[in-house]
Design a protein around this nucleic acid. Structure first.
Lengths: 198, 198
DNA sequence: GTTACTAGGTTAAAAAAGCAACTCGGTTAC
DNA sequence: GTAACCGAGTTGCTTTTTTAACCTAGTAAC
């Protein structure tokens, strides 16, 4: 009970999804810079100012799917059960992502997801913006880990590790293998990477 | 070119249709007065004030399908080719409606249309309101036919004829016959009725 | 080099929608 | 009989969306 989101909120969310989906679908079809924001607004049946009220820039139309995971690492650390070390919590969280083939782990072989990742990695402005998102994520994680240089170093290493793992997984799948097939290696890589963190 | 309906107009029309369709669908399912306007607003995912901005009363939620034909008879008379008598133009127009099994002629056997007509005819407040629509239609037709008592009499008779014809057709179909089967009789009835008009 | 066009992004005003609280007439409960 | 309630329709206020016009940077035309 009490899913009472309210009409306004419900429609807002749906509009946001409609815009994002229309955008990604067009980008995958024709490439990032062969689609104008006008095209997207038209496809989503909203006006251009409305589009920019939902997404500050054209890049964000793609990256909101990552943005939805913003601060996830920090949250995992903050919400860990007492007695669990931060790195362990992050390790388990990543492992759980692998087990459910979560797209953020790179271990998804849904064609749409694979194509989406290719789009992001091969479009410079998108890759650049994604890096900025990750930096924010890193700062948040550092704050969750504590103060001082130690926390900052650990945060940077964790996110670096996650990035490399995700990209490695994606590459194997982009080469034609199935997620199920890659899964054991992905788990082994993750174990090795997380275990060698301080 | 120039399908340019404009975003605003397009959405308005769609909202109107969504409300009307939701309303009729609920009315057919549960009956006119076992559905509240709140139910309809919820089903159409709009707020109650918005509903009443589109439809002045609950009855109009049903009758807008007739309202869309408002003034049609008058228009047919005004737009007739020179040399054609008004009654002839109206006769041909009705005949054309029969040939394409237009719901307003009563000669449609789509279950939804049949049920819709039953709803209107068996709900007093709806039947009453429909009569008022037809009176307005009659006035408009009278004006199109000219001035004076002659025009008014003819208008009244034409609409009376059309009403009887439509209801006769609907009754035969409500009794289980197909529109295709009834069509010849409907045409014959219409010919007889229109030919005996002054 | 100017001109003109395109695409990302912004602005101001007006239309439309949501929300909550209200009126008013008619039932039901007690 | 009166209090509580329900459903149709309204009202005032706020938020959201459309519209059309604009700004700016890049780039193609000539």
């Amino acid at each position: 009970m009490s899913e009472s989101t309210g009409l306004r909120a419900r429609k807002k969310e749906r509009t946001r999804d409609a815009i994002g989906d229309a955008a990604v679908s067009l980008f995958l079809e024709r490439g990032f810079d062969r689609v104008s924001v006008n095209d997207i607004a038209a496809a989503a049946e909203i006006s251009k100012p409305t589009l920019f009220r939902y997404f500050p820039t054209k890049e964000d139309l793609v990256l909101y799917r990552f943005a939805d995971h913003q601060g996830e690492a920090a949250r995992v650390v903050r919400d860990r059960k007492s007695g669990i070390k931060p790195v362990t919590a992050l390790h388990r969280h990543f492992r759980a992502g692998l087990d459910r083939y979560d797209p953020v782990t790179g271990l998804s072989d849904h064609p749409e997801v694979v194509a989406f990742h290719r789009l992001v990695f091969t479009t410079p402005s998108l890759a650049g913006r994604l890096t900025r998102y990750q930096l924010e994520d890193e700062e948040a994680l550092a704050d969750a880990l504590g103060e001082g240089i130690q926390a900052r170093l650990l945060a940077a290493q964790v996110l670096a590790v996650q990035r490399v793992l995700a990209r490695t997984n994606w590459q194997k799948i982009a080469d034609g293998r199935t997620a199920h097939d890659v899964h054991p290696e992905a788990v082994a890589d993750a174990d090795q990477a997380f275990n060698q963190l301080p």
